[in-house]
Design a protein around this nucleic acid. Structure first.
Lengths: 331, 331
DNA sequence: TTGAAAGCGCTAACAA
DNA sequence: TTGTTAGCGCTTTCAA
């Protein structure tokens, strides 16, 4: 293994002090032009790169942004990560991605790692749950919560989506079409998103003069499997004529279940998904959905991430974008 | 801003030397049990985490793995990243993801960043092209090329896919169905994958006794847009009855074009995609495709990544998994 | 069982 | 214009 290339090795090669090399590389004016050129050339030759570790140890900010997502398989998360990465690349920031699988312990682990590496900012979709012992897992971390919000007892920004309007609209639309037995599958109340989406669904039903039976509203820890099983149960029982989904994973799971059962979504049962994967429009003539503005979310997040570069003060804000009800053939 | 918590601050609080703290935290036997307990407790209290920067500067390996992908929007890449992240998490490794957009300059930039941060291993889907001046961009980096292979003039491992068999099979199948004018849309010859897939297509045609016209084989720098335009052109000209795709992005683009044109893929034109996004099976009765084993690829890659932890020697191997032709209604 | 010194790569502050 | 020193957080080596 060849030794690392450092300013000292350059200095040694050129018979000058490492300080001169440092100055030459950082465009200081206090270097003779000729010296600078020699240094730059030598640096090129032997492939010098500045040591991140040394810079960090001296107290420089790291330009590392942590991104903590449930997974990357769901197109929403993948698109968000993709879009955010592109924004950050422009700023010269690097993205460190951790997947939580919506598991709070993994989330804690990931935050620890991010703290070690001194990622100063973290964008996270919080997992459902609470920390057993909340000793400074978030210390030194500037946090932006995405989509969902959890009590953090620490200043934390939030980029959220107001999906109430879209959900109410979706329910109203179903009622208009004559649906009476409309089911809802969503996340449980551990997270802000679970609570508010359910509330929106109920409010939509009430506005339509409908009263949902308790067995028509399934709220549990959200996941693909949960969506799958819930939808299959509803379909098999045959007691509902429409399904509204309240989560990305849930939506895909539920859709999968319906398709696997051979249900016609433009006939047998009306279906309203959540999020808007590129392929929803091509399935069964098009899946109606609550569309979440991924790109805007990423742009807004990037903006927040960067803006605070200057004002290092309290990281505490709350932005809300709006979801949209997209009507296609499935409803 | 509170000052960083270090072993020195703990030492100061406890009125002992930072060396004792260091020993206590690293489970050295040379510490009095009582002292150790006090240190551990204090560390807990004030949320101490070991400094990544300091460790790195001392010469410790970083546990950072760079992942360089064209994008995360394509489900294949997203699944690969997801899967790899899960494997690596177990090993305590962190994934730093950079997106190249298949642009060689961005790729170069990303590699530089990875070198700065001392990510010792990098998994990359090489972008088409060559470096203008190849001065040690890869120095100190242990590289695994994924899917495609490019001349690197540096020892680099490779985890590839042998898709020839599947492509030949796909063409044979189309010929069996009576197709004579079969088109191919794939990447150009700058990359190994582009060359080998085209070769496989040609060989399949030859075996079926068919001679493809030059205008039926479109090979360019691969992208979604390229697939989209190529397919639209083919469809509009109406000179072919089947399309075979030779790339992930291309496949999605081409499929999109066909769907947007309202083509029936189980009637008008036969279509064989590339990669197997979860939704291909639900579109138009199911899209036939060349399926690439994502999960196995990630597993194999993780294995290589970890195995070499022990033997720090030459990073030079070549593994090949096999693609599979999946027949659905679109062909 | 504890502590002091040195060094990893770099730059601010001072000295020449 | 160039060089020397010190210190960021940590562990290895040597000394007490």
């Amino acid at each position: 293994m060849t030794k690392r290339v450092t300013i000292k090795s350059i200095a040694h090669d050129l018979g000058i002090s490492h300080m001169t090399v440092s100055r030459a590389l950082s465009n200081s004016s206090k270097v003779r032009e000729q010296t600078r050129r020699k240094v730059l050339q030598r640096a090129q030759e032997i492939g010098y790169v500045k040591s991140f570790a040394a810079a960090t140890m001296r107290g420089e900010q790291t330009a590392l942004i942590g991104l903590l997502l449930p997974n990357l398989v769901n197109e929403f998360y993948a698109r968000f990560a993709d879009s955010l990465a592109q924004h950050l690349e422009v700023e010269g920031q690097q993205l460190i991605i951790h997947l939580s699988g919506d598991d709070i312990d993994k989330e804690r682990q990931a935050l620890l790692k991010l703290r070690e590496i001194q990622a100063n900012r973290v964008v996270m979709v919080p997992a459902p749950g609470v920390y057993e012992n909340q000793k400074g897992y978030l210390q030194d971390l500037q946090i932006i919560q995405l989509i969902r919000q959890r009590e953090m007892n620490v200043a934390a920004g939030a980029v959220l989506v107001d999906d109430s309007g879209a959900i109410v609209q979706a329910v109203a639309h179903l009622a208009d079409q004559g649906h009476r037995r409309i089911a809802y599958i969503g996340g449980d109340s551990l997270l802000s998103s679970g609570r508010s989406r359910l509330a929106a669904f109920l409010s939509g039903m009430r506005l339509a003069g409908l009263e949902p039976g308790a067995d028509q509203m399934i709220t549990e820890r959200p996941s693909f499997a949960m969506g799958y099983h819930s939808a299959r149960g509803l379909v098999d029982q045959g007691r509902v004529t429409a399904i509204v989904c309240g989560g990305f994973e849930i939506s895909n799971g539920a859709l999968h279940a319906c398709l696997a059962r051979g249900i016609s979504l433009s006939g047998d049962i009306s279906f309203i998904g959540f999020g808007d994967p590129s392929w929803y429009r091509w399935i069964g003539g098009g899946i109606s959905t609550i569309k979440i503005p991924v790109t805007s979310l990423a742009a807004k997040t990037a903006e927040m991430l960067v803006k605070k570069d200057s004002a290092e003060k309290n990281y505490d804000f709350r932005h809300q974008l709006t979801a949209e009800f997209i009507r296609r053939r499935s409803s």
